[in-house]
Simulated assay, not measured.
Amino acid sequence: MNRDELAEFLRNRRARVTPRDVALPEAGQRRTPGLRRQEVAQLAGMSIDYYIRLEQARGPHPSHQVINALARALMLDQDERAHLFRLAGQPLDAPRIRSDVPQGTLHLLGYLEEVAAYVLNPRYDLLAWNPLAGALLGGLDARPRDDLNVIRWVFRSPDIAEHLDDEERGRFARTSVADLRVAAGRYPDDAGLQALVAEMLALSPDFARVWAEHEVAPRREQRKRVTHPLVGLIEVICQVMQVPDRDDLRLVLYTAEPGSPSHQALRELRELTLSS
Rank of each mutant, 00 (worst) to 15 (best):
A161F: 02
L127R: 09
R37C: 14
G192M: 04
R81E: 13
F155Y: 08
L106F: 01
T18R: 13
H263F: 06
R13S: 11
M241R: 01
V216D: 01
A183R: 02
R171Y: 01
D247M: 09
E271T: 07
F85G: 05
R250C: 03
F207W: 04
A133T: 03
E26S: 13
G110R: 13
L251M: 11
D93E: 14
A265G: 10
F155S: 02
A57T: 05
P62T: 09
R58C: 00
L120R: 11
L272P: 07
G139H: 11
L106R: 10
E268H: 08
D125M: 05
P131Y: 09
G89C: 11
L136W: 02
M200L: 15
P258I: 08
W129C: 13
R31H: 02
L164D: 05
I48S: 14
S47K: 13
A202V: 11
R86I: 00
M75V: 15
Q194A: 15
D141L: 13
V226H: 00
P244Y: 07
A202H: 11
G28I: 06
A161N: 01
R225E: 15
R145G: 08
G45T: 00
R186E: 13
A208C: 11
P158M: 10
H107R: 15
R36S: 13
D190V: 09
L108P: 09
P122H: 07
V17D: 07
A217E: 02
A117D: 01
R169D: 04
G34T: 04
A94I: 10
L253H: 00
S204L: 03
L92N: 02
R246Q: 08
P144A: 10
R123V: 07
L196S: 11
L74I: 04
Q78F: 05
N68T: 13
E5L: 14
W153K: 03
P62G: 14
V226I: 15
G104F: 08
R31S: 07
L230H: 10
R270N: 14
N149W: 00
S276Y: 00
P218V: 05
Q264M: 02
I67A: 03
V177L: 05
P95M: 04
E213T: 06
R209W: 01
L24P: 04
D248H: 00
R81L: 08
R31K: 11
Q90N: 07
S276D: 14
D247V: 12
N149P: 03
L109P: 06
T255R: 07
N130P: 13
N121K: 08
R225Y: 03
L251Y: 00
L274G: 10
E26K: 09
D49I: 09
L127A: 12
A198S: 10
F172A: 04
P258M: 05
R220L: 09
A41M: 06
A15W: 02
T227M: 06
R219N: 04
V231Y: 04
E167R: 12
E114D: 06
A7S: 15
M241W: 06
R16P: 13
L140T: 09
I237A: 13
V150R: 05
A82V: 12
